[in-house]
Each structure stands twice: as structure tokens, then as C-alpha cells.
Amino acid sequence: MSTESPVGDNFTKVAAADEIEQGTGIAVDVKGIEVAVFNTGDDFYAILNRCAHQQAPLYKAGEEKINAEDTWTDTRGGVDAENATVSCPWHLWEWDLETGEHEVTGKCISTFDVEVADGDVYVSI
């Protein structure tokens, strides 16, 4: 992937903005750290990809379920644009995308700054 960053030296390009569909995420390995990048529709957010509960890959939140039409909610966990949270695809722990906090336990995982420039998404590790 190209290396020039128009948004600052410590930002790394992770994807073209249109590669991350609204309500979904991708995961990338940036400098050895697994990062999940979500498009809530309002904004892009980057958070550590591994859930602190049992290490689920958070970027799978919003993935369509098997036989989704025969269930009620269609997706495994998901992104909540209004509250800027993501619920984990395994057990639905809800992570604040701004602060990285899980309210019930008070546990936190890292979040990262995101910039969008020229149609590309950049993350600062």
C-alpha cells in the first residue's frame, strides 16, 4: 500500500473510504497492531480489533448472520451510529468507539485517531 500521508507523518493509510461500507468495519495490521476501522455512516473510527472479553475480532461486528432472514436482527453484533458504539460479534459487549470503554466492566481498549483525505482513510498508531 502507498506510503505518502497527506494528513501527517504518523498516519497510515488503511483503506479507500469507499471500501468500508456503512455500518461495517475492516481489520488491518498496522505496525504489528490489529486495528478495526468502522464506518458508522457519520464518521470513521479506529479501535483495537481484539475484544477485551474473549479476543473476538471486533471488525466482524455487523457481519450478516447465517440464515439472517430467519432471525430477528440480521447481523452478528453491529455498529450503532447514533451512540458511536460497536457491539462485539460474539457476546455483544458494547464498546464506545470514541473512548474505547465498555461501560459495565469499566474496561478500556485502545482507540486511534482517524483522518479522511482524498477519499482515503488514515489511522494514527
Binding site: 500500500m1 506510503t3 493509510k13 495490521d29
Partner: peptide, 11 residues
């Protein structure tokens, strides 16, 4: 500074 990134195995 940029850096190479890699998508994870979705399977």
C-alpha cells in the same frame, strides 16, 4: 511516515 498494512484473514 507511512507503513505497509495488511488485511486480516476473514475466515
Amino acid at each position: 511516515m507511512g507503513s505497509s498494512t495488511e488485511q486480516l484473514d476473514p475466515e
